[in-house]
Design a protein around this nucleic acid. Structure first.
Length: 428
RNA sequence: GGAGACGUGGCCGAGAGGUCGAAGGCACUCCCCUGCUAAGGGAGCAUUCGGGCACAAACCUGAAUCGAGGGUUCGAAUCCCUCCGUCUCCGCCA
């Protein structure tokens, strides 16, 4: 959610910045709502003040045992207008909030202006894609030939867009997550979190999945209780740690790493990446979350993105970093870097991490604050990034490290997690 | 799943229709006193939003908030309803 004060005082500037991401802010509608709000709120509060002081008089009169019927008649006369105003104000404020809630975050100045994903800008490349003296296979062919990746059985058990791993490949999947957690906790200073995979609507609203993206979520309805949602990313439970909190001065930065499964309905994505593990209803991810002071968030995004890149480098996976243009950024983000890993079978780079600075956009919605050195509260800034998506990392390792006979070389960094094994081959 | 108790500021805790945003204590901040330490005295100390107000701060003022949301009432921390959460006992369970 954007700062309403900023909208009131600098509407034109906000409007221009939003236009760079292709969002047209209806300033006429906003101004109209704002004018109505101001008159209605002032009037309502005047009436409430009047009622409060009269009611207080009644209390004082009755306390002294005197007659209060005249004052009671006076306050009764107010009631009809006050009730009408309170109802109208409530409706208007809800409408106002709903309107503001649909406005996306404003991009930072360093974000390239663009019209589509075509306009994203490559920042750097690391590593050199290997050349192969045989025809490369994709991870589906490799995994099925090894007898360790089974989409048919997953479909029988659950349905389309699920996968089943067996044996060494299942272990490699686990090893990847363990390795990432170890690097981030031991070398990058993150605190490991284990968090709920089901969360309430308030948490989903806090990080911005609700109300706009309900269709992408798996929802658990319960007859005698409020619904729960399966998390689409650990960002949701972890960032909500600070919801409705006022953190002590000096408590920041908070750096959390959390490995969870992620569940996405992705209703709009059918037909895209239907083959393989690239786009699934369930996948594992190691997520990095930082809660920082406002003036620190720009550098924190650089740091966090480096932490994710370090994993790719330790796994010897060629990648590039892309800064998303204004049109391609997520709703809540002020700036986003995507990391894309090289996939030889697709002969292209594919997203494996997305690192974003949300500034105060999520914090405002969550009321996540910190006490500054003047003992005043101010909103924190929130950031997160995948460090990395586990399933896609498995895909990248399989495809980049494949050998002519269909076996897969295990990167050095993962061998301690694989009882020292160097390759994955057909089980004997 | 069954039965019961409870939810008040950073923390503890009083308040049980009226002058209550809320006694008292702890913690914290400032001041005074004091060789050091400890103790003592005084003052301050919730959040969000609106208006004064033209950017910000300060200040003044109003509203809302006692787990959340509704209701009753001129007036609700207090009474009623729903939900959320905590605790105790029983059952079940990794």
């Amino acid at each position: 959610m954007l700062d309403i004060q900023l909208l009131r005082t600098n509407l034109d500037t906000v409007c221009e910045r939003l236009a760079t991401r292709g969002y047209v802010l209806d300033t006429v509608a906003f101004q109209k709502l704002e004018t109505q709000r101001k008159t209605l709120q002032t009037r309502t509060q005047d009436l409430q003040a009047n009622r409060n002081s009269l009611s207080k008089q009644i209390g004082m009169l009755k306390g002294k045992g005197e007659d209060a019927t005249a004052v009671m008649a006076e306050v009764s006369a107010l009631k009809a207008e006050l009730d009408a105003n309170e109802i109208a104000l409530g409706d208007l404020l809800r409408e106002f909030d709903a309107f503001v809630a649909t406005i996306p975050n404003t991009p930072q100045d360093s974000v390239p202006v663009g019209k589509s994903a075509e306009d994203n800008v490559e920042i750097k490349r690391w590593g050199k894609p290997a050349s192969y003296d045989f025809t490369v296979k994709d991870h589906v062919d490799l995994g099925e030939a090894l007898g360790q990746l089974d989409f048919a059985t997953a479909a029988k058990i659950a349905g389309a867009r699920f996968s089943l791993l067996k044996g060494p490949l299942a272990r490699l999947h686990r090893a990847i997550a363990q390795f990432m957690l170890d690097v981030h906790t031991e070398e990058h200073g993150y605190t490991e979190i284990y968090a709920p995979y089901l969360v309430n609507a308030a948490s989903m609203t806090g990080t911005g999945q609700l109300p706009k993206f309900e269709a992408d979520l798996f929802k658990i309805l319960r007859p005698d209780a409020e619904p729960l949602y399966l998390i689409p990313t650990a960002e949701v439970p972890v960032t909500n740690i600070v919801r409705d909190e006022i953190l002590a001065a000096g408590a920041l930065p908070l750096k959390f790493v959390c490995h969870t499964p992620c569940f996405r309905s992705e209703a709009g994505s059918y037909g895209k990446d239907t083959r393989g593990m690239i786009r699934q209803h369930q996948f594992d991810k190691v997520e990095l979350v930082q809660i920082v002071a406002a003036e620190k968030s720009v550098e924190a995004l650089e740091e966090l993105t480096r932490h994710a890149e370090t994993i790719l480098e330790k796994l010897e996976l060629p990648y590039r970093r892309v800064v998303l243009c204004t049109a391609d950024m997520g709703f809540s983000s002020a700036k986003t870097y995507d990391l894309e890993v090289w996939l030889p079978a697709q002969n292209t780079y594919r997203e494996i991490s997305s690192c974003s600075n949300f500034e105060a956009f999520q914090a405002r919605r969550m009321q996540a604050r910190v006490r500054n050195d003047k003992n005043k509260t101010e909103l924190v800034h929130t950031l997160n990034g995948s460090g990395l998506a586990v399933g896609r990392t498995l895909v990248a390792i399989m495809e980049n490290n494949q050998r002519a006979d269909g076996s897969i070389r295990i990167p050095d960094a993962l061998r301690p997690y694989m009882r020292g094994a160097e390759i994955i081959t057909l089980p004997r």
